[in-house]
Design a protein around this nucleic acid. Sequence first.
DNA 1: CCCGCACCTGACAACGTTGTCCAGGCTCTA
DNA 2: TAGAGCCTGGACAACGTTGTCAGGTGCGGG
Lengths: 345, 345
Amino acid sequence: MADTARRPENRYGNRPTMKDVAARAGVGLKTVSRVVNAEPGVTPETERRVQEAIDALGFRRNDSARVLRKGSTASIGLVLEDLADPFYGPLSRAVEETARAHGALLINGSSAEDPDREQELVLALCARRVDGLVIIPAGDDHRYLEPELRAGVATVFVDRPAGRIDADVVLSDSFGGARDGVAHLIAHGHRRIGFIGDMPRIHTSAERLRGYRAAMEDAGIPVEDAWMSLGVTDPERVRHAAEEMLTSPSPVTAIFAGNNRVTVTVVRVLDEQRRPVALVGFDDFELADLLRPGVTVVAQDAAQLGRTAAERLFRQLDGTLLTPERIELPTRLITRGSGELPPAD
Amino acid sequence: MADTARRPENRYGNRPTMKDVAARAGVGLKTVSRVVNAEPGVTPETERRVQEAIDALGFRRNDSARVLRKGSTASIGLVLEDLADPFYGPLSRAVEETARAHGALLINGSSAEDPDREQELVLALCARRVDGLVIIPAGDDHRYLEPELRAGVATVFVDRPAGRIDADVVLSDSFGGARDGVAHLIAHGHRRIGFIGDMPRIHTSAERLRGYRAAMEDAGIPVEDAWMSLGVTDPERVRHAAEEMLTSPSPVTAIFAGNNRVTVTVVRVLDEQRRPVALVGFDDFELADLLRPGVTVVAQDAAQLGRTAAERLFRQLDGTLLTPERIELPTRLITRGSGELPPAD
DNA sequence: CCCGCACCTGACAACGTTGTCCAGGCTCTA
DNA sequence: TAGAGCCTGGACAACGTTGTCAGGTGCGGG
């Protein structure tokens, strides 16, 4: 029974443990723990010896064991749709900053807009015992989270509401923003206005569509089916959809784009048109002001969204926040030219 | 001595453990473990009973304990400069995809270009016993990683090389790319060419500056100090620097921008100039083709950078990769107009 | 000079899981 | 029908850390 047989073969070689440090420093295990955690009650001389042994062995505390013992991981999970989407950059950054301010690490993953993958990710994070979750949901049924919520995992949904459970939600006012954006086009004389957006099963898309319809109805303009294109998001199909509504029997003179990916593609299409077509997009994007014409957008503050969510998360953890709420942040219309073009009939 | 006194007060309330599940199902602890891990040797009937208890209690395995026992966390760490920088979006996405393909989670953090913060983050990740690290370094001395490397933590540096240790590195060819970009301007007749870049202590910045100098030297053009602006990255100062070199005694007729943040600001400045000034930027960015003129760039493939790094990481973990290497990915010059403007003397 | 007190230090159990090992019951065959 | 072998299930230790508690030392005061 050689000593080597006692340790399981893992890929870490054999990292030194507190026990090893203690042996080398000629002190007890607990004393090492005290030094590592800067607890009081250790003679400077003893502390020096321990510190020396730590440096010599290259010891690093094993947080898994610590977590197991203490019950809190000081880490939070962030589940979003796509790390590479520029919209989520400032959002994750804000969540990370807040986490950092609370001494927590951030674990994150992309759901790729797939509800199953979202659930898989969230549950994996729960198994790691993250203290809290910030979720940009892909699915619309989150009852699978009920045991977690009961167990006290703090949870905040961002950008889209939770489905079938009662949880904190931080949103942008998609409905109001879209309505204002479309009303802006109407105010500039447009009546035939197109809408291109993502699948209505995504809450924000549905809300923006609703805003579009509301603005049109407020102005007493009947909406034609040919003006609306839903569930379209990849560049090829957005291009096709835009071209369709520009050449339909009653061609649109303006387009409202439901998110920034759509907006960017529409900009390309309009760039190729002979007659000017007005455009308002939901979501701001870098360089929108440098294009000719500048792109008028309904801007939402992604960083603020993330900050608000993360702060609520930590307030849940503090215990200073108890009842779930739904917070809606206002949007802001930024006029840059494309939304103020008159209709070219 | 109530039972409740036995459990430490943690924020998870009391989550059910395998022991609880076992008690409820009327089986042994290990049997539950077998069911949870889909190990063979459990009767369907027993499995059903256990599964029922799991669902009823909302049990979720505690991965901390599992990790402690097994030694591997199935997670990797990604340390980058700024989550919100669009350049890192595709990179993190690629790392995440690769991690996912290997069944690993991604933990990440931003160093904000601060070496201390980088070290702090990296060591925190090591304490969590991540299996591997992908690091976009902020500092230039990574000897603090030596104990970790010895302990077998797989490590790959991306975008910038490691300092004072021998480690895997995946880079873009900053020197060659910058040289080509500047040579492109020279080929279009420019001789007074400005360079605006980040601090030379950042490896990529230094390399790009070196590329600029090499191209100028190859063409026999002496470089004036007034044409170079280093360590400048925030919009205000970039603007100032650009304006300076455009109005100096020997004003530049073209600018080479050292990274995409600089490029974007320079675009704004040039947009306000009366005479046309040529521009080539390092790093591609969205919509560069839609500006007037389109912005000519030296493009690097961020996603490929991330994918290559992550794949090498997992090959290190497989044991199929043993000696550290330095890999340089080529860049690509994309001409769109701004780099082909003739000098306006 | 001795008692008590404060201050350090270390032994030990526990966190929740998995690997090892053994016991008991079953089936199948001789 | 008995023995061999297989299959299922459980008891137990160990992973590395931290909380509890008790022992030991040195010092000051009575």
